[in-house]
Design a protein around this nucleic acid. Structure first.
Lengths: 196, 196
DNA sequence: TCTCTCATCTAACAGCCGTTAGTTTTTTCA
DNA sequence: TGAAAAAACTAACGGCTGTTAGATGAGAGA
């Protein structure tokens, strides 16, 4: 078979990683078994090992692919010639978009990255910290230029990143507002606050 | 033995639940074994079953104790004769306090409540939804009285609750600002926004 | 058509899991 | 001090885990 036969996936490995993302999202990494995954792929558990090295490799693929996307996003935002409040807005829009359109992966990474083993654990942890530091630097520059309130920048970053992860419950909600409305509401709240 | 002999715990069961909270916080519910837990309690795994019915009972204790505290908090806030923006502030302060002083339990509940089995799963899920609805009602009333911006109330609630959970990374940070500063910064950001 | 490659299969491994049974030790209380 | 109760122990269970070995089958290229 080799190519194109699998739905939108160049290789079978990619198809497995995608099924794994959904499974890990639903059950969590530790509660997901290779036999569960195999069933969803439509194959026996042992057959998976022709395409992957281990269960953990699946988690690695998921975590580092997400980390890579984050880095690309912040690269672009740093380069663009915008005000710092606009940069913050772009960061927020990127994360909101990820949570709306790519939320299985984002949730798995956030919840289960701690189950990586060394040296991947440290590598991932460092990338995560580096990413947050780059956002922190943008917030600090925004404060220095008086575009942003004089707040503790690391606290602001932590709120930005975690607030957005609440979109998880928007997905499960029955009376969803539209994705666009959701995005604008979140931006309004974080940039301008609740209070009138 | 029965009483007072255990450090601050009326019963051995309470001591076990507390050790379990810490273990589950560190490793996650599924990745924590009863043999792990027994070692921390200083006993063989089988001995735990003189005090508890099952591993899941530990998770139930943790989840429903937290849910009970949340309900008591919102009861009090609803009764107090305050403005609606003050009620929102009180809700935020309660959650910030929980994340600062009781974060192991809060994190375990948020991450692992899905591992409850029926009927506890549904019961917990309903309590969670009911709690959020009560907060949503407060936000909506605040909007009606023009104390709060005209935002989508469920979105606001989701941001409130998740933003605060970012305090998890404050705990792990090396250069912590004080708990009081953290609290005031979070309130400032959520009530007034980033933007100047 | 023959051969080589690679995906899939069945069977099994060693190890860990939550939990139980049955026994022994410790504590409680009269 | 002696009986009853509670809590600890050892040993083991059945089942599930990730993973490997080795046989079987199917498709690709000569």
């Amino acid at each position: 078979m080799s190519k194109i036969s699998n739905n939108n996936h160049a290789t079978k490995k990619e198809a497995i990683v995608e099924k794994a993302s959904k499974l890990f999202f639903e059950k969590g990494f530790r509660a997901s078994s290779m036999r569960d995954l195999a069933e969803r792929v439509g194959v026996e558990a042992a057959s998976l090992y022709n395409h992957i090295k281990s269960k953990e490799e699946l988690l690695q693929e998921i975590c580092f692919k997400a980390a890579h996307q984050y880095m690309e996003s912040i690269d672009a935002i740093e380069k663009e010639d915008n005000s710092y409040i606009q940069k913050i807005e772009k960061i927020l829009r990127f994360h909101i978009d990820q949570m709306i359109n790519n939320y299985e992966i984002v949730q798995v990474v956030d919840r289960d990255w701690k189950h990586l083993s060394e040296p991947h654990l440290s590598k991932y942890h460092n990338e995560r910290r580096a990413y947050r530091k780059r956002i922190t630097a943008i917030v600090e520059e925004g404060i220095k230029r008086n575009e942003v309130k004089d707040i503790d920048a690391p606290t602001a970053v932590l709120i930005m990143l975690h607030a957005v992860s609440g979109i998880e419950s928007w997905h499960r909600s029955t009376q969803k507002i539209s994705a666009k409305d959701l995005e604008e509401n979140i931006l309004l709240i974080l940039l301008k606050g609740f209070s009138n």
